[in-house]
Design a protein around this nucleic acid. Structure first.
Length: 512
RNA sequence: GGUGCUAUCGUCUAGUGGCCUAGGACAACGGCCUCUCACGCCGUAAACCCCGGUUCGAGUCCGGGUAGCACUACCA
């Protein structure tokens, strides 16, 4: 009775994988793992006109980066695409023969018919009749195998006339769809049109047919997909019935949509560039239109942060927990705790998640990740131990690895100018004299560790009643160029005696 | 226009008839810590779309309204 759980993520290679699609893939993956089932990946490339080269690779690479594992179908392994499983092929464009067979079955059983109406004719019809719909009310006035003699249909088809196969929707029936998230949804078949299932022009089925055939053949137990599919779910139920597969029809779960952070509507490709944050997991160079879209990976996001962030956009556990590892998500996830309403994409919270996961990474690891940024800023061969040290000193104040540069640049490059605001507030009339004297104190330091320096500088300040804040802030400006940064002795420790003294002298020269 | 789905702080959400004086998180604001800037910690402000009904009792159930969203292709 209990069926093996098999779910699929079935994107179209029409561009970069949208962040909403990533979440759909994630929920499918979590569901599969939790039930010890299979996660399949199938490419739905039945629209040859929208195909974008590189999109398939992109999708698989993105899932691989995020740690969303694929058990069957297409997946990325060591930078190479591989197909695994016995239900293939897993690209719909390679399953033409299979679809032919099922189109024929529907035609033979009277559940579908051939239609010759051209796109132009249909367009004219729509212009002529408001709210025109190709259905039980209108199909008998159109050019199709229901209205034309069988011999003529055969003659046209054999003669290479372009045609489509339409599903014959029976009128006046309440179609029930059971949805795991929304419960029972009922739609009357009268509002459904006779959907095109197959187009002879490119010898490919449409989504609706391919989807049902593949899900059946691949033994999919649960269809977890975006809410935009809810209106066509009744059509899919009707198709399962027409094929005689009603008893093995998968369960449906329609996920709420990801909405724009401002205004209205669902999150789209263009929102990212408009609002200044990525809507794609990886940077994408579209070979078709030449556009480049930014990605979470390239923006400095950690995959575990993206996963955690996305998981909580539309799902929530039973308690107040917000930080989840993938394993915890697999354990806790459940479809009945998925929200019903759309979620505005809150980019700010994503930053916070990244901050949290950044703190968990080791200094050495972060130093490696920081290397490209250093190089981009002209730091050619940094001492990696030193980089790890400064990263450790500053990582708790950044959300992203590249931001480390703003926090650590003075460790690598001595200041040449000094922040005006800091000077105004922290560089006093006595500061040049203090620094000159401090120079002498430091020159005579018996050692250069934090404890030693603190042990001689503090008593010196106290003895002269200069004020700790006044001296230390002026000193900080000399070393950093502004009133910011980690603890002063941590800075002198990294800089070393020679560099520290040189910076104080340079500051004295410029600031007087 | 038609059909469907949805509706709690600015945002993500907890809440499944009394535990709600509506909880948590992000963001905002204030304070503490402190040589600075941050981090961190503590605190403040901030919501049940509206109208009816059911009930001893409604954020929670029902009806209506309103609003938002999705779909309405030989796209997925």
């Amino acid at each position: 009775m209990e069926r093996r759980v098999r779910v699929r993520f079935a994107p179209s290679p029409t561009g970069a994988l949208h962040i909403g699609g990533v979440r759909t893939a994630l929920y499918n993956y979590l569901f599969a793992r939790q039930h010890g089932g299979d996660m399949l990946l199938r490419i739905e490339d039945t629209d040859s006109t929208r195909f974008v080269p590189g999109a398939e690779e992109y999708i698989l690479e993105a899932l691989d980066w995020l740690g969303i594992g694929i058990d069957e179908g297409l997946r990325m392994r060591n930078g190479q695409i591989e197909a695994v499983g016995s239900h293939g092929p897993y690209r719909q464009s390679e399953r033409r023969e299979i679809y032919h067979q099922y189109v024929k079955q529907l035609l033979d059983s009277g559940h579908a018919y051939i239609a010759f109406d051209t796109p132009e004719e249909l367009e004219a019809k729509r212009a002529e009749i408001p709210n025109f719909q190709y259905d039980a009310r209108t199909r008998m006035q159109m050019r199709n195998s229901l209205t034309m003699p069988a011999e003529e249909v055969k003659r046209l088809v054999d003669g290479g006339e372009k045609y489509v196969v339409r599903f014959k929707v029976e009128p006046d029936e309440d179609v029930h769809v059971h949805d795991l998230i929304r419960g029972e949804v009922v739609i009357n078949s009268n509002i459904l049109d006779d959907k095109v299932l197959y187009k002879s022009a490119d010898d490919l089925p449409t989504y609706h047919l391919a989807n049902i055939v593949d899900d059946h053949l691949m033994e999919i137990s649960h269809v977890i997909r975006g809410e935009e599919w809810l209106p066509s779910a009744p059509l899919h139920v009707l198709l399962y019935r027409a094929f005689g597969w009603a008893d093995t029809m998968p369960e449906f779960a329609h996920l709420p949509l990801l909405l724009k952070p401002d205004g209205n509507g669902k999150l789209s490709k263009r929102d990212g560039d408009r609002l200044g944050f990525p809507v794609f997991p990886l940077e994408f160079h579209n070979q078709k239109d030449g556009t480049v879209s930014s990605g979470y990976r390239e923006s400095g996001y950690l995959p575990e942060a993206v996963i955690n962030f996305l998981a909580l956009l539309g799902w929530h556990g039973t308690g107040d927990q917000e930080l989840y590892t993938m394993d915890e998500l697999i354990k806790e996830f459940s479809l009945d705790r998925v929200s019903k309403s759309g979620a505005k994409f809150d980019y700010e919270k994503g930053k916070w998640f990244n901050h949290q996961y950044l703190q968990l990474r080791s200094n050495e690891e972060l130093a490696q990740m920081f290397l490209p940024t250093l190089l981009a800023n002209g730091i050619e061969h940094p001492d990696m131990n030193m980089v790890a040290t400064v990263v450790g000193l500053t990582k708790d104040r950044v959300n992203f690895v590249p931001e480390l540069w703003e926090q650590t640049n003075f460790f690598f490059v001595a200041p040449t100018e000094y922040d005006e605001k800091s000077l105004k507030k922290r560089w006093k009339e006595d500061s040049p004299r203090h620094m000159t004297e401090l120079l002498e104190v430091l020159e005579n330091a018996p050692a250069w560790d934090a404890e030693t320096l603190d042990g001689i500088v503090m008593p010196w300040i106290e003895a002269h009643e200069y004020g700790v804040g006044i001296v230390m802030n002026a000193f900080r400006i000399c070393l950093v160029g502004a009133a910011r940064g980690p603890h002063i002795w941590a800075i002198t420790d990294v800089l070393g005696k020679e560099e520290t003294l040189a910076r104080v002298r340079a500051a004295l020269k410029i600031l007087g």
